[in-house]
């Protein structure tokens, strides 16, 4: 935990945008809005991108809180990306943070769909539009891989057997057997509740 706080301090001092200030809210809105506007795909796609921005680039929140929030967002009803942005915003800057992140997450699709409803054919069949989307999809892929590998590295560095087994089991279940993430999360929560209460896992 100390180590993570230290990481946060370093990142904050590097960019010097302190949560709670006016400049912070503007940067938070702008970056969340742009990520939401140009990321095709659901919650598990947009969250690594937000994580890259909030944790790695600005140091506004740490890995552990982001993963906790992602898990909770997955388990609650509603749209996962919206759930996550509500809780991430709150964690970073309280109620104002929530208002900013939720607006920045919801506005882009609202605007895009309103426009696209008029230009559906152009959008669906234009080769160049398709290529731009394809490019952005590859860009998002690179970020997800980077975030995934980074988190896996940290998980293995802790050298705790059960968490590694949980990750492996969940990975195989969701990739090879297409198990709904909801059920994965539910089973892993029960395993955690029974086996991981020892403080060394915190």
């Amino acid at each position: 935990m100390n180590n993570e706080n230290q990481q946060l301090d370093e990142a904050v001092s590097k960019l010097n945008i302190v949560p709670g200030t006016r400049h912070f809210f503007w940067v938070l809105f702008k970056s969340t809005f742009l990520i939401s506007a140009f990321t095709v795909g659901g919650g598990m796609v947009i969250i690594p991108l937000l994580k890259k921005k909030y944790v790695d680039e600005y140091g506004w929140i740490n890995d552990k809180d982001t993963l906790d929030i992602t898990a909770i967002a997955q388990s609650l009803p509603g749209i996962m990306a919206v759930n996550a942005s509500i809780m991430l915003g709150y964690k970073m800057a309280g109620f104002m943070g929530t208002m900013v992140t939720i607006l920045a997450t919801v506005l882009p699709p609202l605007i895009t769909i309103t426009i696209i409803a008029f230009f559906y054919d152009l959008f669906a069949h234009n080769y160049y539009v398709q290529m731009i989307l394809k490019g952005m999809q590859c860009g998002a892929t690179a970020v997800i891989i980077d975030v995934g590998l980074n988190l896996v590295g940290k998980l293995f560095k802790k050298k705790l057997l059960i968490p590694i087994l949980i990750a492996l089991g969940t990975f195989i279940a969701s990739l090879c057997f297409n198990v709904n993430p909801m059920y994965c999360v539910l089973v892993d929560a029960i395993i955690g509740l029974m086996l991981l209460r020892d403080p060394k896992y915190n």
């Binding site: 995934g148 988190l151 949980i166 991981l196």
Partner: peptide
């Protein structure tokens, strides 16, 4: 805390699957 300790590795795995 225990529950969340079980959920964190799960999220790491789900992000990898999405990747």
């Amino acid at each position: 805390k225990g529950t969340l300790n079980g959920l964190r590795p799960a999220v790491v795995a789900l992000i990898c699957t999405a990747g």
